[in-house]
């Protein structure tokens, strides 16, 4: 029993029934009703890293994140994209409702991308940080998780499907399937639902 307590203390396991609100973090509505209904707390875990695993760009990752990004940028809070998979096409982002002047992207690779992600998370002035970090391992993910918690910043980290089997300290892990479908691999404070969730096709 004591070993279970120590595991709980070190946050390596958690009680599924303990709701997200008892963990102290509020959730931020994702803007997709079907997803919010399932996620504990009714949205993205704030001040934490949400990990998104996909085969690459074009899997609906923007359709998933645009609602929360557009809401934050319209509130006048900056959002930073770190080493995105392509050049953001401003017209598309504007059509999605994003306030472009609050949206910034960092064209960096490798170690600098990891450093920049951590800096943005830690600074506490970004509303959200969305990073594409195929190079991040679980140790670095833990670092980013700590940074997100200390900066109280919403973080999304995209990693390739190859990392699905790897342990990850992120409280929420999602796998993106065919366009606009996702599967919850792990979520702290709730049972992952086995079925896929359609989060709304692209308009």
């Amino acid at each position: 029993m004591s070993s279970l307590e120590s595991l709980l203390d070190s946050r390596q396991v958690w009680r599924a029934q303990a709701g997200a609100d008892s963990q102290g973090g509020d959730a931020i509505a994702s803007g997709h009703a079907a997803l919010d209904a399932i996620l504990p707390g009714g949205g993205w875990p704030s001040a934490a890293v949400s990990e998104l695993l996909s085969a690459g760009a074009g899997n609906g990752e923007l359709a998933l994140l645009w609602p929360v990004i557009s809401r934050m940028t319209r509130e006048g809070r900056p959002v930073v994209l770190v080493s995105p998979p392509g050049v953001p096409y401003p017209a598309a982002w504007r059509q999605a409702g994003v306030a472009l002047e609050q949206c910034h992207w960092l064209d960096v690779q490798g170690r600098e991308a990891l450093w920049a992600t951590e800096q943005c998370l830690r600074a506490g002035c970004c509303a959200a940080v969305v990073a594409w970090l195929p190079q991040a391992d679980s140790r670095l993910m833990r670092r980013l998780q700590v940074a997100a918690a200390s900066g109280n910043t919403l973080a999304f980290v995209h990693r390739p499907l190859a990392k699905v089997s790897e342990a990850s300290p992120a409280p929420l892990r999602l796998r993106l399937h065919r366009h606009a479908e996702l599967e919850i691999l792990k979520c702290r404070g709730g049972f992952p639902s086995a079925r896929r969730i359609a989060f709304g096709a692209r308009a």
Partner: peptide
Amino acid sequence: QAQAWAALHQRLVARLGEPVLKPLVE
């Protein structure tokens, strides 16, 4: 918030160089 953002901007540019942090302009 604006000041913290300015400080972050400064830090990023100092290490990564000016052209790296790009705005979205249509």
